[in-house]
Structure formats: structure tokens, C-alpha cells
Write a protein that binds this DNA or RNA. Sequence first.
DNA 1: GCAAATAAGAAACCAAAAGTTTCTTATTTT
DNA 2: AAAATAAGAAACTTTTGGTTTCTTATTTGC
Lengths: 197, 197
Amino acid sequence: MSNSQHPDKLKNRRRGKELEAAILQAVREELTEQGYSNLTMDGVAERAGTSKAVLYRRWANRAEIVLAAIRERVPLPLEEVPDYGNLRDDVCGVLRSMNQNNIEVMIKAFYGLVTEIGAMPLASLLFPQGRHNRTMTIVLQRAVDRGEVSAEAVTPRMLTLPADLARHELMLYNKPMSEQTIANLVDEVFLPLVLKR
Amino acid sequence: MSNSQHPDKLKNRRRGKELEAAILQAVREELTEQGYSNLTMDGVAERAGTSKAVLYRRWANRAEIVLAAIRERVPLPLEEVPDYGNLRDDVCGVLRSMNQNNIEVMIKAFYGLVTEIGAMPLASLLFPQGRHNRTMTIVLQRAVDRGEVSAEAVTPRMLTLPADLARHELMLYNKPMSEQTIANLVDEVFLPLVLKR
DNA sequence: GCAAATAAGAAACCAAAAGTTTCTTATTTT
DNA sequence: AAAATAAGAAACTTTTGGTTTCTTATTTGC
């Protein structure tokens, strides 16, 4: 027997942040492949090449680890809200941004977490209304400056309406919105309400 | 020893529909008190005063029994859509009808079921878009007849918009909508889009 | 009214998965 | 180089979904 056995079984132990990142990545992969209710701690441990004890040293339970895995992927606020030169394209841009970042995984996790935790701080984490609000404030202010929209038309409801409708689509159909849906929401609902005429 | 023992332990066996109704009621109560993820089959059996075997003779698994318990409570289509004499009040009526029938329980179940089943036929069961569509068709036709709305304004999007926004509110906040919210959705979003002017 | 068929209820059972504990050993810290 | 720290393996407990078996109350059909 050679003394360099287990060529696949590295005894290179990861620790700290490196290990943690690998675990959370494994959670996201299991979530994608298995869905929330079939995601098991054993499965995560095996996929991450570690053991359950390591998971439970860091997170108290399944919900916590999934939450951590998802939280990492919540997009950071856009420093610059891109200016496409008109309100329509700006708002479409905002809605398109809600489509990305593995939205399916986010929603799968969301349903599971709400079921288990029941709380709604979650909603504001996974569907960050505050952020969309800020973005929409900028977008609508620009439209006012351009003369597309009168200042009185900018009400709280108009700030949230496009993202609310988009969120509804995402939650109900559990998949990214089509370009057609985005266009319909903007052209048939939002713009007629705010555009000057 | 008297031969009329067990004064509390009736040997009055319920069967068929009567038993089934008691079980589904127990499911709803457990759902309310425990939430979906803490609802156990043993708990349901005990509360209903029966045994697990009886449950599994009727339903294949936990999701099925919860689904059955909820399905019972989905309101039947309104034979008569009440006519309040104007579009505003008619639409408010439709949204108010979405508030009732233990909406919190419905939503708790909904999140759990989507997590476990993952499917979206659910959505159409628990948030019956078809029904709302039918109701809204009637309501809007009336408005056209009254001259409040022009026929071209009645698009598919306008048929679903009020219920979509209401559903979004319900799913996100997990509680009945306030009168103020209903009024805001109708007055600030829906009516301006469809009313003649 | 009685025998046979049916379904309820009790209880033991299995398997999967969450969560815990203990122990060994690789890696880092001092 | 020794001591402290944390990873990894594995066995273990508990809970719960789901199944099976058996007894017996109730219904059905004659």
C-alpha cells in the first residue's frame, strides 16, 4: 500500500470565510435543484464537502442557513440609476432589474422561509421595497425635470406601483417576467397614470 | 365496576361526510394555531378525535389534506354580483370580498403548499383569477352600460388589475386589506385608468 | 333480525431528516 | 514547539410523515 492514499480525499481543510462561502454556495445549488422542502442539511453538508456539525456551529437551523445563502445574493442598491432619456425606458429598466439575480431561487426560498418563519421582515429583505422606492424617486424626479410628468402626479402609490405589479407577477408565476409583461405593465398601467397629457 | 364506563370516551363512531368535515375543521384550526410548518398529522388526528390511519385513508399526504381543508373555504362564485349603482362601489365590493373567508389561514396554507408542491395551479385555486375575471367582466360591462366607461377601455389588463393589486397586498402583508387601502387602489389606480373623462 | 361487508380507531412500526454530542486531527496562533 | 482553535467523521436522539395490523362499531343486504 502506497502511503499517498486517498488521492481525492484532500486533507486540505478549509476554514473561516472560505468554508462559509462554499457552504452557502452549496445551499443555493441544493435550493435550485431540490427546492426548499427537499433541501436537507445532510445534502448541503455533503455537497459542500463538510459535515453537519460544521453547519450547526454557524447557523441555528435550516431556515437560518437558507436565509444567509439568499441574503448574500440580494442585489446591492444601484449607485447610479441608469438614465435612458425617457420615463418609459427608465421604469422598464427598474422592472428588468427585478428579474435578475436568480429570481427563481429567491422566490423558492421566499415561500419556504415565510412558511417556516412566518415573518414579513423577510419580504422587505427579499423584495426590498425601500430600495425600489429610492430608485423610483430618482426616476420620477427626472421625468418631472424633463417635463414628462407633473410634480403632483408623484404620489407614494405611483412610487411603488410598478414594483408592486412586478412583484405580484414574480410571486404568482414564479419565473422572470417576459419583456411583453414588463411593457404591458408600464404602457397600460403606469404611464397613463403619471404622464402629462 | 359499572358497565357504563368511559363517560367521556364515546363509542359513537362518526363516519363518512360527518367525520370528514370534522377532520378538515381540525386541519383549519391547527393551521391557524400552529401554522403550516408546525401542523402535524398526529396533531390533526388528535384534535379531530380520530387516528392517523383515518386521515391517510382519505388523503395521500399532508399537502393534500391541507389543500382539501382550504378548498372547502374558497368562496363560491357570486351568483349575483351586487350592483351598487356605480363602478367605484362595485369594484370596492369585489376587493372587499377578497378580504373575507379567513384570508390569513388561506395565505398561511398557500405559502406552505407552494413550498411543498411548488406548483401554480394552486394560485388559481386559492386566488381564483377566473372568478374575479368573470365578476369584473360583469362589473365593467355595467359601467359601460351606465356610460361611466367606454367599451375600448375594457382590456384584459383592466379586468385583472384590481384583484392583482389586492392579491399583492394580501400576500405581502398577510392580513386583510384596510378600507383605506382598498379605496386607494380603486381611486388612485383603477378608476383613473378606465373612467371616461 | 342477523350475517357479512365496511370503515373507524388504536397502536406498533419504519424511514427520513433535523438537530446534538463526542472524538480525532489538521491548522493556526503564540 | 506547544497550546488553542476549529474541521470533519460518525454515532446518536427526537420528531414526524407515512404504513401496517388488528379489533370492533356501524351499516348494508338478505
